[in-house]
């Protein structure tokens, strides 16, 4: 028996899908996690003289990738069902590129002699980027599951069945939630980047 049948039967709060509320709650959890980690970072830096860290220029490029990834998903969630599949795939591909770019940034740091245990700045940098990347990987799982819905509805559109996703349709909600999660991760990444830049 699916949750949907129950929900519709209760009919208590149709205006706010349960999945949307759950995502907000999850974002609160993730916010706590990164807030804890960043405050620990700032405290910990105060206890060491040495916190140099080279900042690969690649990080700027990666940031751009994530910005465009976020934009593409947002456009897909607002646009027509016909254009959505292409935008959705582009957004996801950019996110994958971002993750690959982060791995290259790691290898640049390693080549410069900065490893996980080198100094507190490098320890936190690896840890923060790893946790952020894992959140994005989790997002990509949701992205993949949504992609199949988007592509199916896009096909329906090409047969002229629907011009836009209905505002409350389940696909529309999935797109919006996924895009929203992406914006959240973009914001987290920008905060991490700014803090790292200011403190090393």
């Amino acid at each position: 028996m699916s949750a949907q049948t129950f929900t519709e039967a209760n009919g208590s709060h149709p205006e706010l899908p349960a999945t949307k509320l759950a995502l907000w709650l999850f974002l609160a959890v993730a916010t706590m996690l990164f807030a804890m980690l960043l405050s620990a970072y700032l405290v910990r830096l105060g206890f060491s003289e040495e916190h140099a860290l080279p900042k690969p220029n690649l990080l700027w490029f990666n940031t751009l990738l994530l910005v465009f990834s976020s934009l593409a998903l947002e456009r897909a969630s607002r646009g027509t069902a016909r254009r959505a599949p292409a935008l959705w795939l582009v957004g996801g591909a950019l996110a994958v590129l971002f993750l690959i770019g982060q791995l290259f940034a790691w290898s640049e740091l390693a080549q410069a002699g900065y490893f996980l245990a080198t100094n507190p700045a490098s320890s936190f940098f690896y840890l923060l980027t790893a946790l952020h990347g894992m959140h994005l990987l989790g997002g990509l799982v949701a992205w993949t599951r949504t992609a199949s819905c988007v592509i199916q509805e896009g096909r329906g559109e090409s047969r002229g069945e629907a011009v836009r996703f209905a505002p409350a349709s389940s696909t529309r909600v999935k797109l919006e939630l996924c895009a929203f999660y992406w914006h959240f991760l973009l914001a987290v990444w920008v905060v991490i980047l700014i803090l790292v830049w200011m403190t090393t």
Partner: peptide
């Protein structure tokens, strides 16, 4: 629980890195 467990998670992960990889958190 939702708001407090992340602190344990973060502290635990840093402790694990201190144990496994010689970091100095």
């Amino acid at each position: 629980a939702l708001l407090a467990f992340p602190a344990l998670f973060v502290g635990g992960v840093m402790l694990l890195l201190d144990s496994l990889f010689g970091t100095s958190f």
